[in-house]
Amino acid sequence: MPRIHMILALCALAALSGCGAVIVGAGGAVIADQVVEDQQGGDGLF
């Protein structure tokens, strides 16, 4: 039974680390959009 808990914990960790990359990427896109808006005016990328 403890082996199953270890496998589930590793799966959860992998899923959370994948989501973290998506969140960081989305944050970078928002910052890039703001920079483009500041430099060029208009509504930027989005």
Rank of each mutant, 00 (worst) to 15 (best):
L10K: 08
A21S: 04
A26L: 06
C19F: 15
S17A: 14
I31P: 02
I7R: 03
A14T: 03
M1G: 13
I7L: 06
S17V: 11
H5S: 12
D43L: 13
A14H: 00
Q39I: 13
D38R: 10
A14M: 04
G42K: 00
P2I: 15
A12S: 05
L10F: 05
D33K: 01
D43K: 09
I23C: 08
P2E: 15
M1C: 09
A12V: 03
Q34Y: 13
M6C: 09
G28R: 12
C11A: 13
M1H: 14
P2D: 14
A26T: 06
A29D: 10
A12T: 04
Q39R: 11
L8V: 08
G20I: 02
L45G: 02
M6P: 00
V24W: 06
D33S: 05
F46V: 12
G41E: 02
P2M: 15
L8P: 02
A32C: 03
G27N: 08
A15R: 00
P2L: 15
G25T: 04
A21G: 15
D43T: 12
C11G: 07
M6W: 05
A12P: 00
L45V: 05
A29N: 13
G41F: 01
L10Y: 06
V22L: 14
E37Q: 14
V22G: 07
V35F: 07
V30C: 07
G42I: 00
C19S: 15
F46D: 10
Q34M: 15
L13Q: 06
D43M: 09
V35P: 02
A9W: 03
D33Y: 02
G28H: 03
V36R: 07
A29G: 09
V35T: 13
M1N: 13
A12D: 06
M1V: 09
A29K: 14
I23K: 10
G25P: 01
A26W: 03
G25F: 02
L8D: 09
M6I: 11
Q34T: 11
G44W: 00
G27P: 00
D38A: 14
A32S: 06
D33V: 03
Q34L: 13
Q34K: 15
G28N: 10
A14V: 05
P2V: 14
R3N: 15
D43V: 11
A26C: 04
G44P: 00
L13S: 07
L16Q: 10
G28S: 10
I23E: 08
L8W: 04
L45I: 09
S17T: 13
M6N: 08
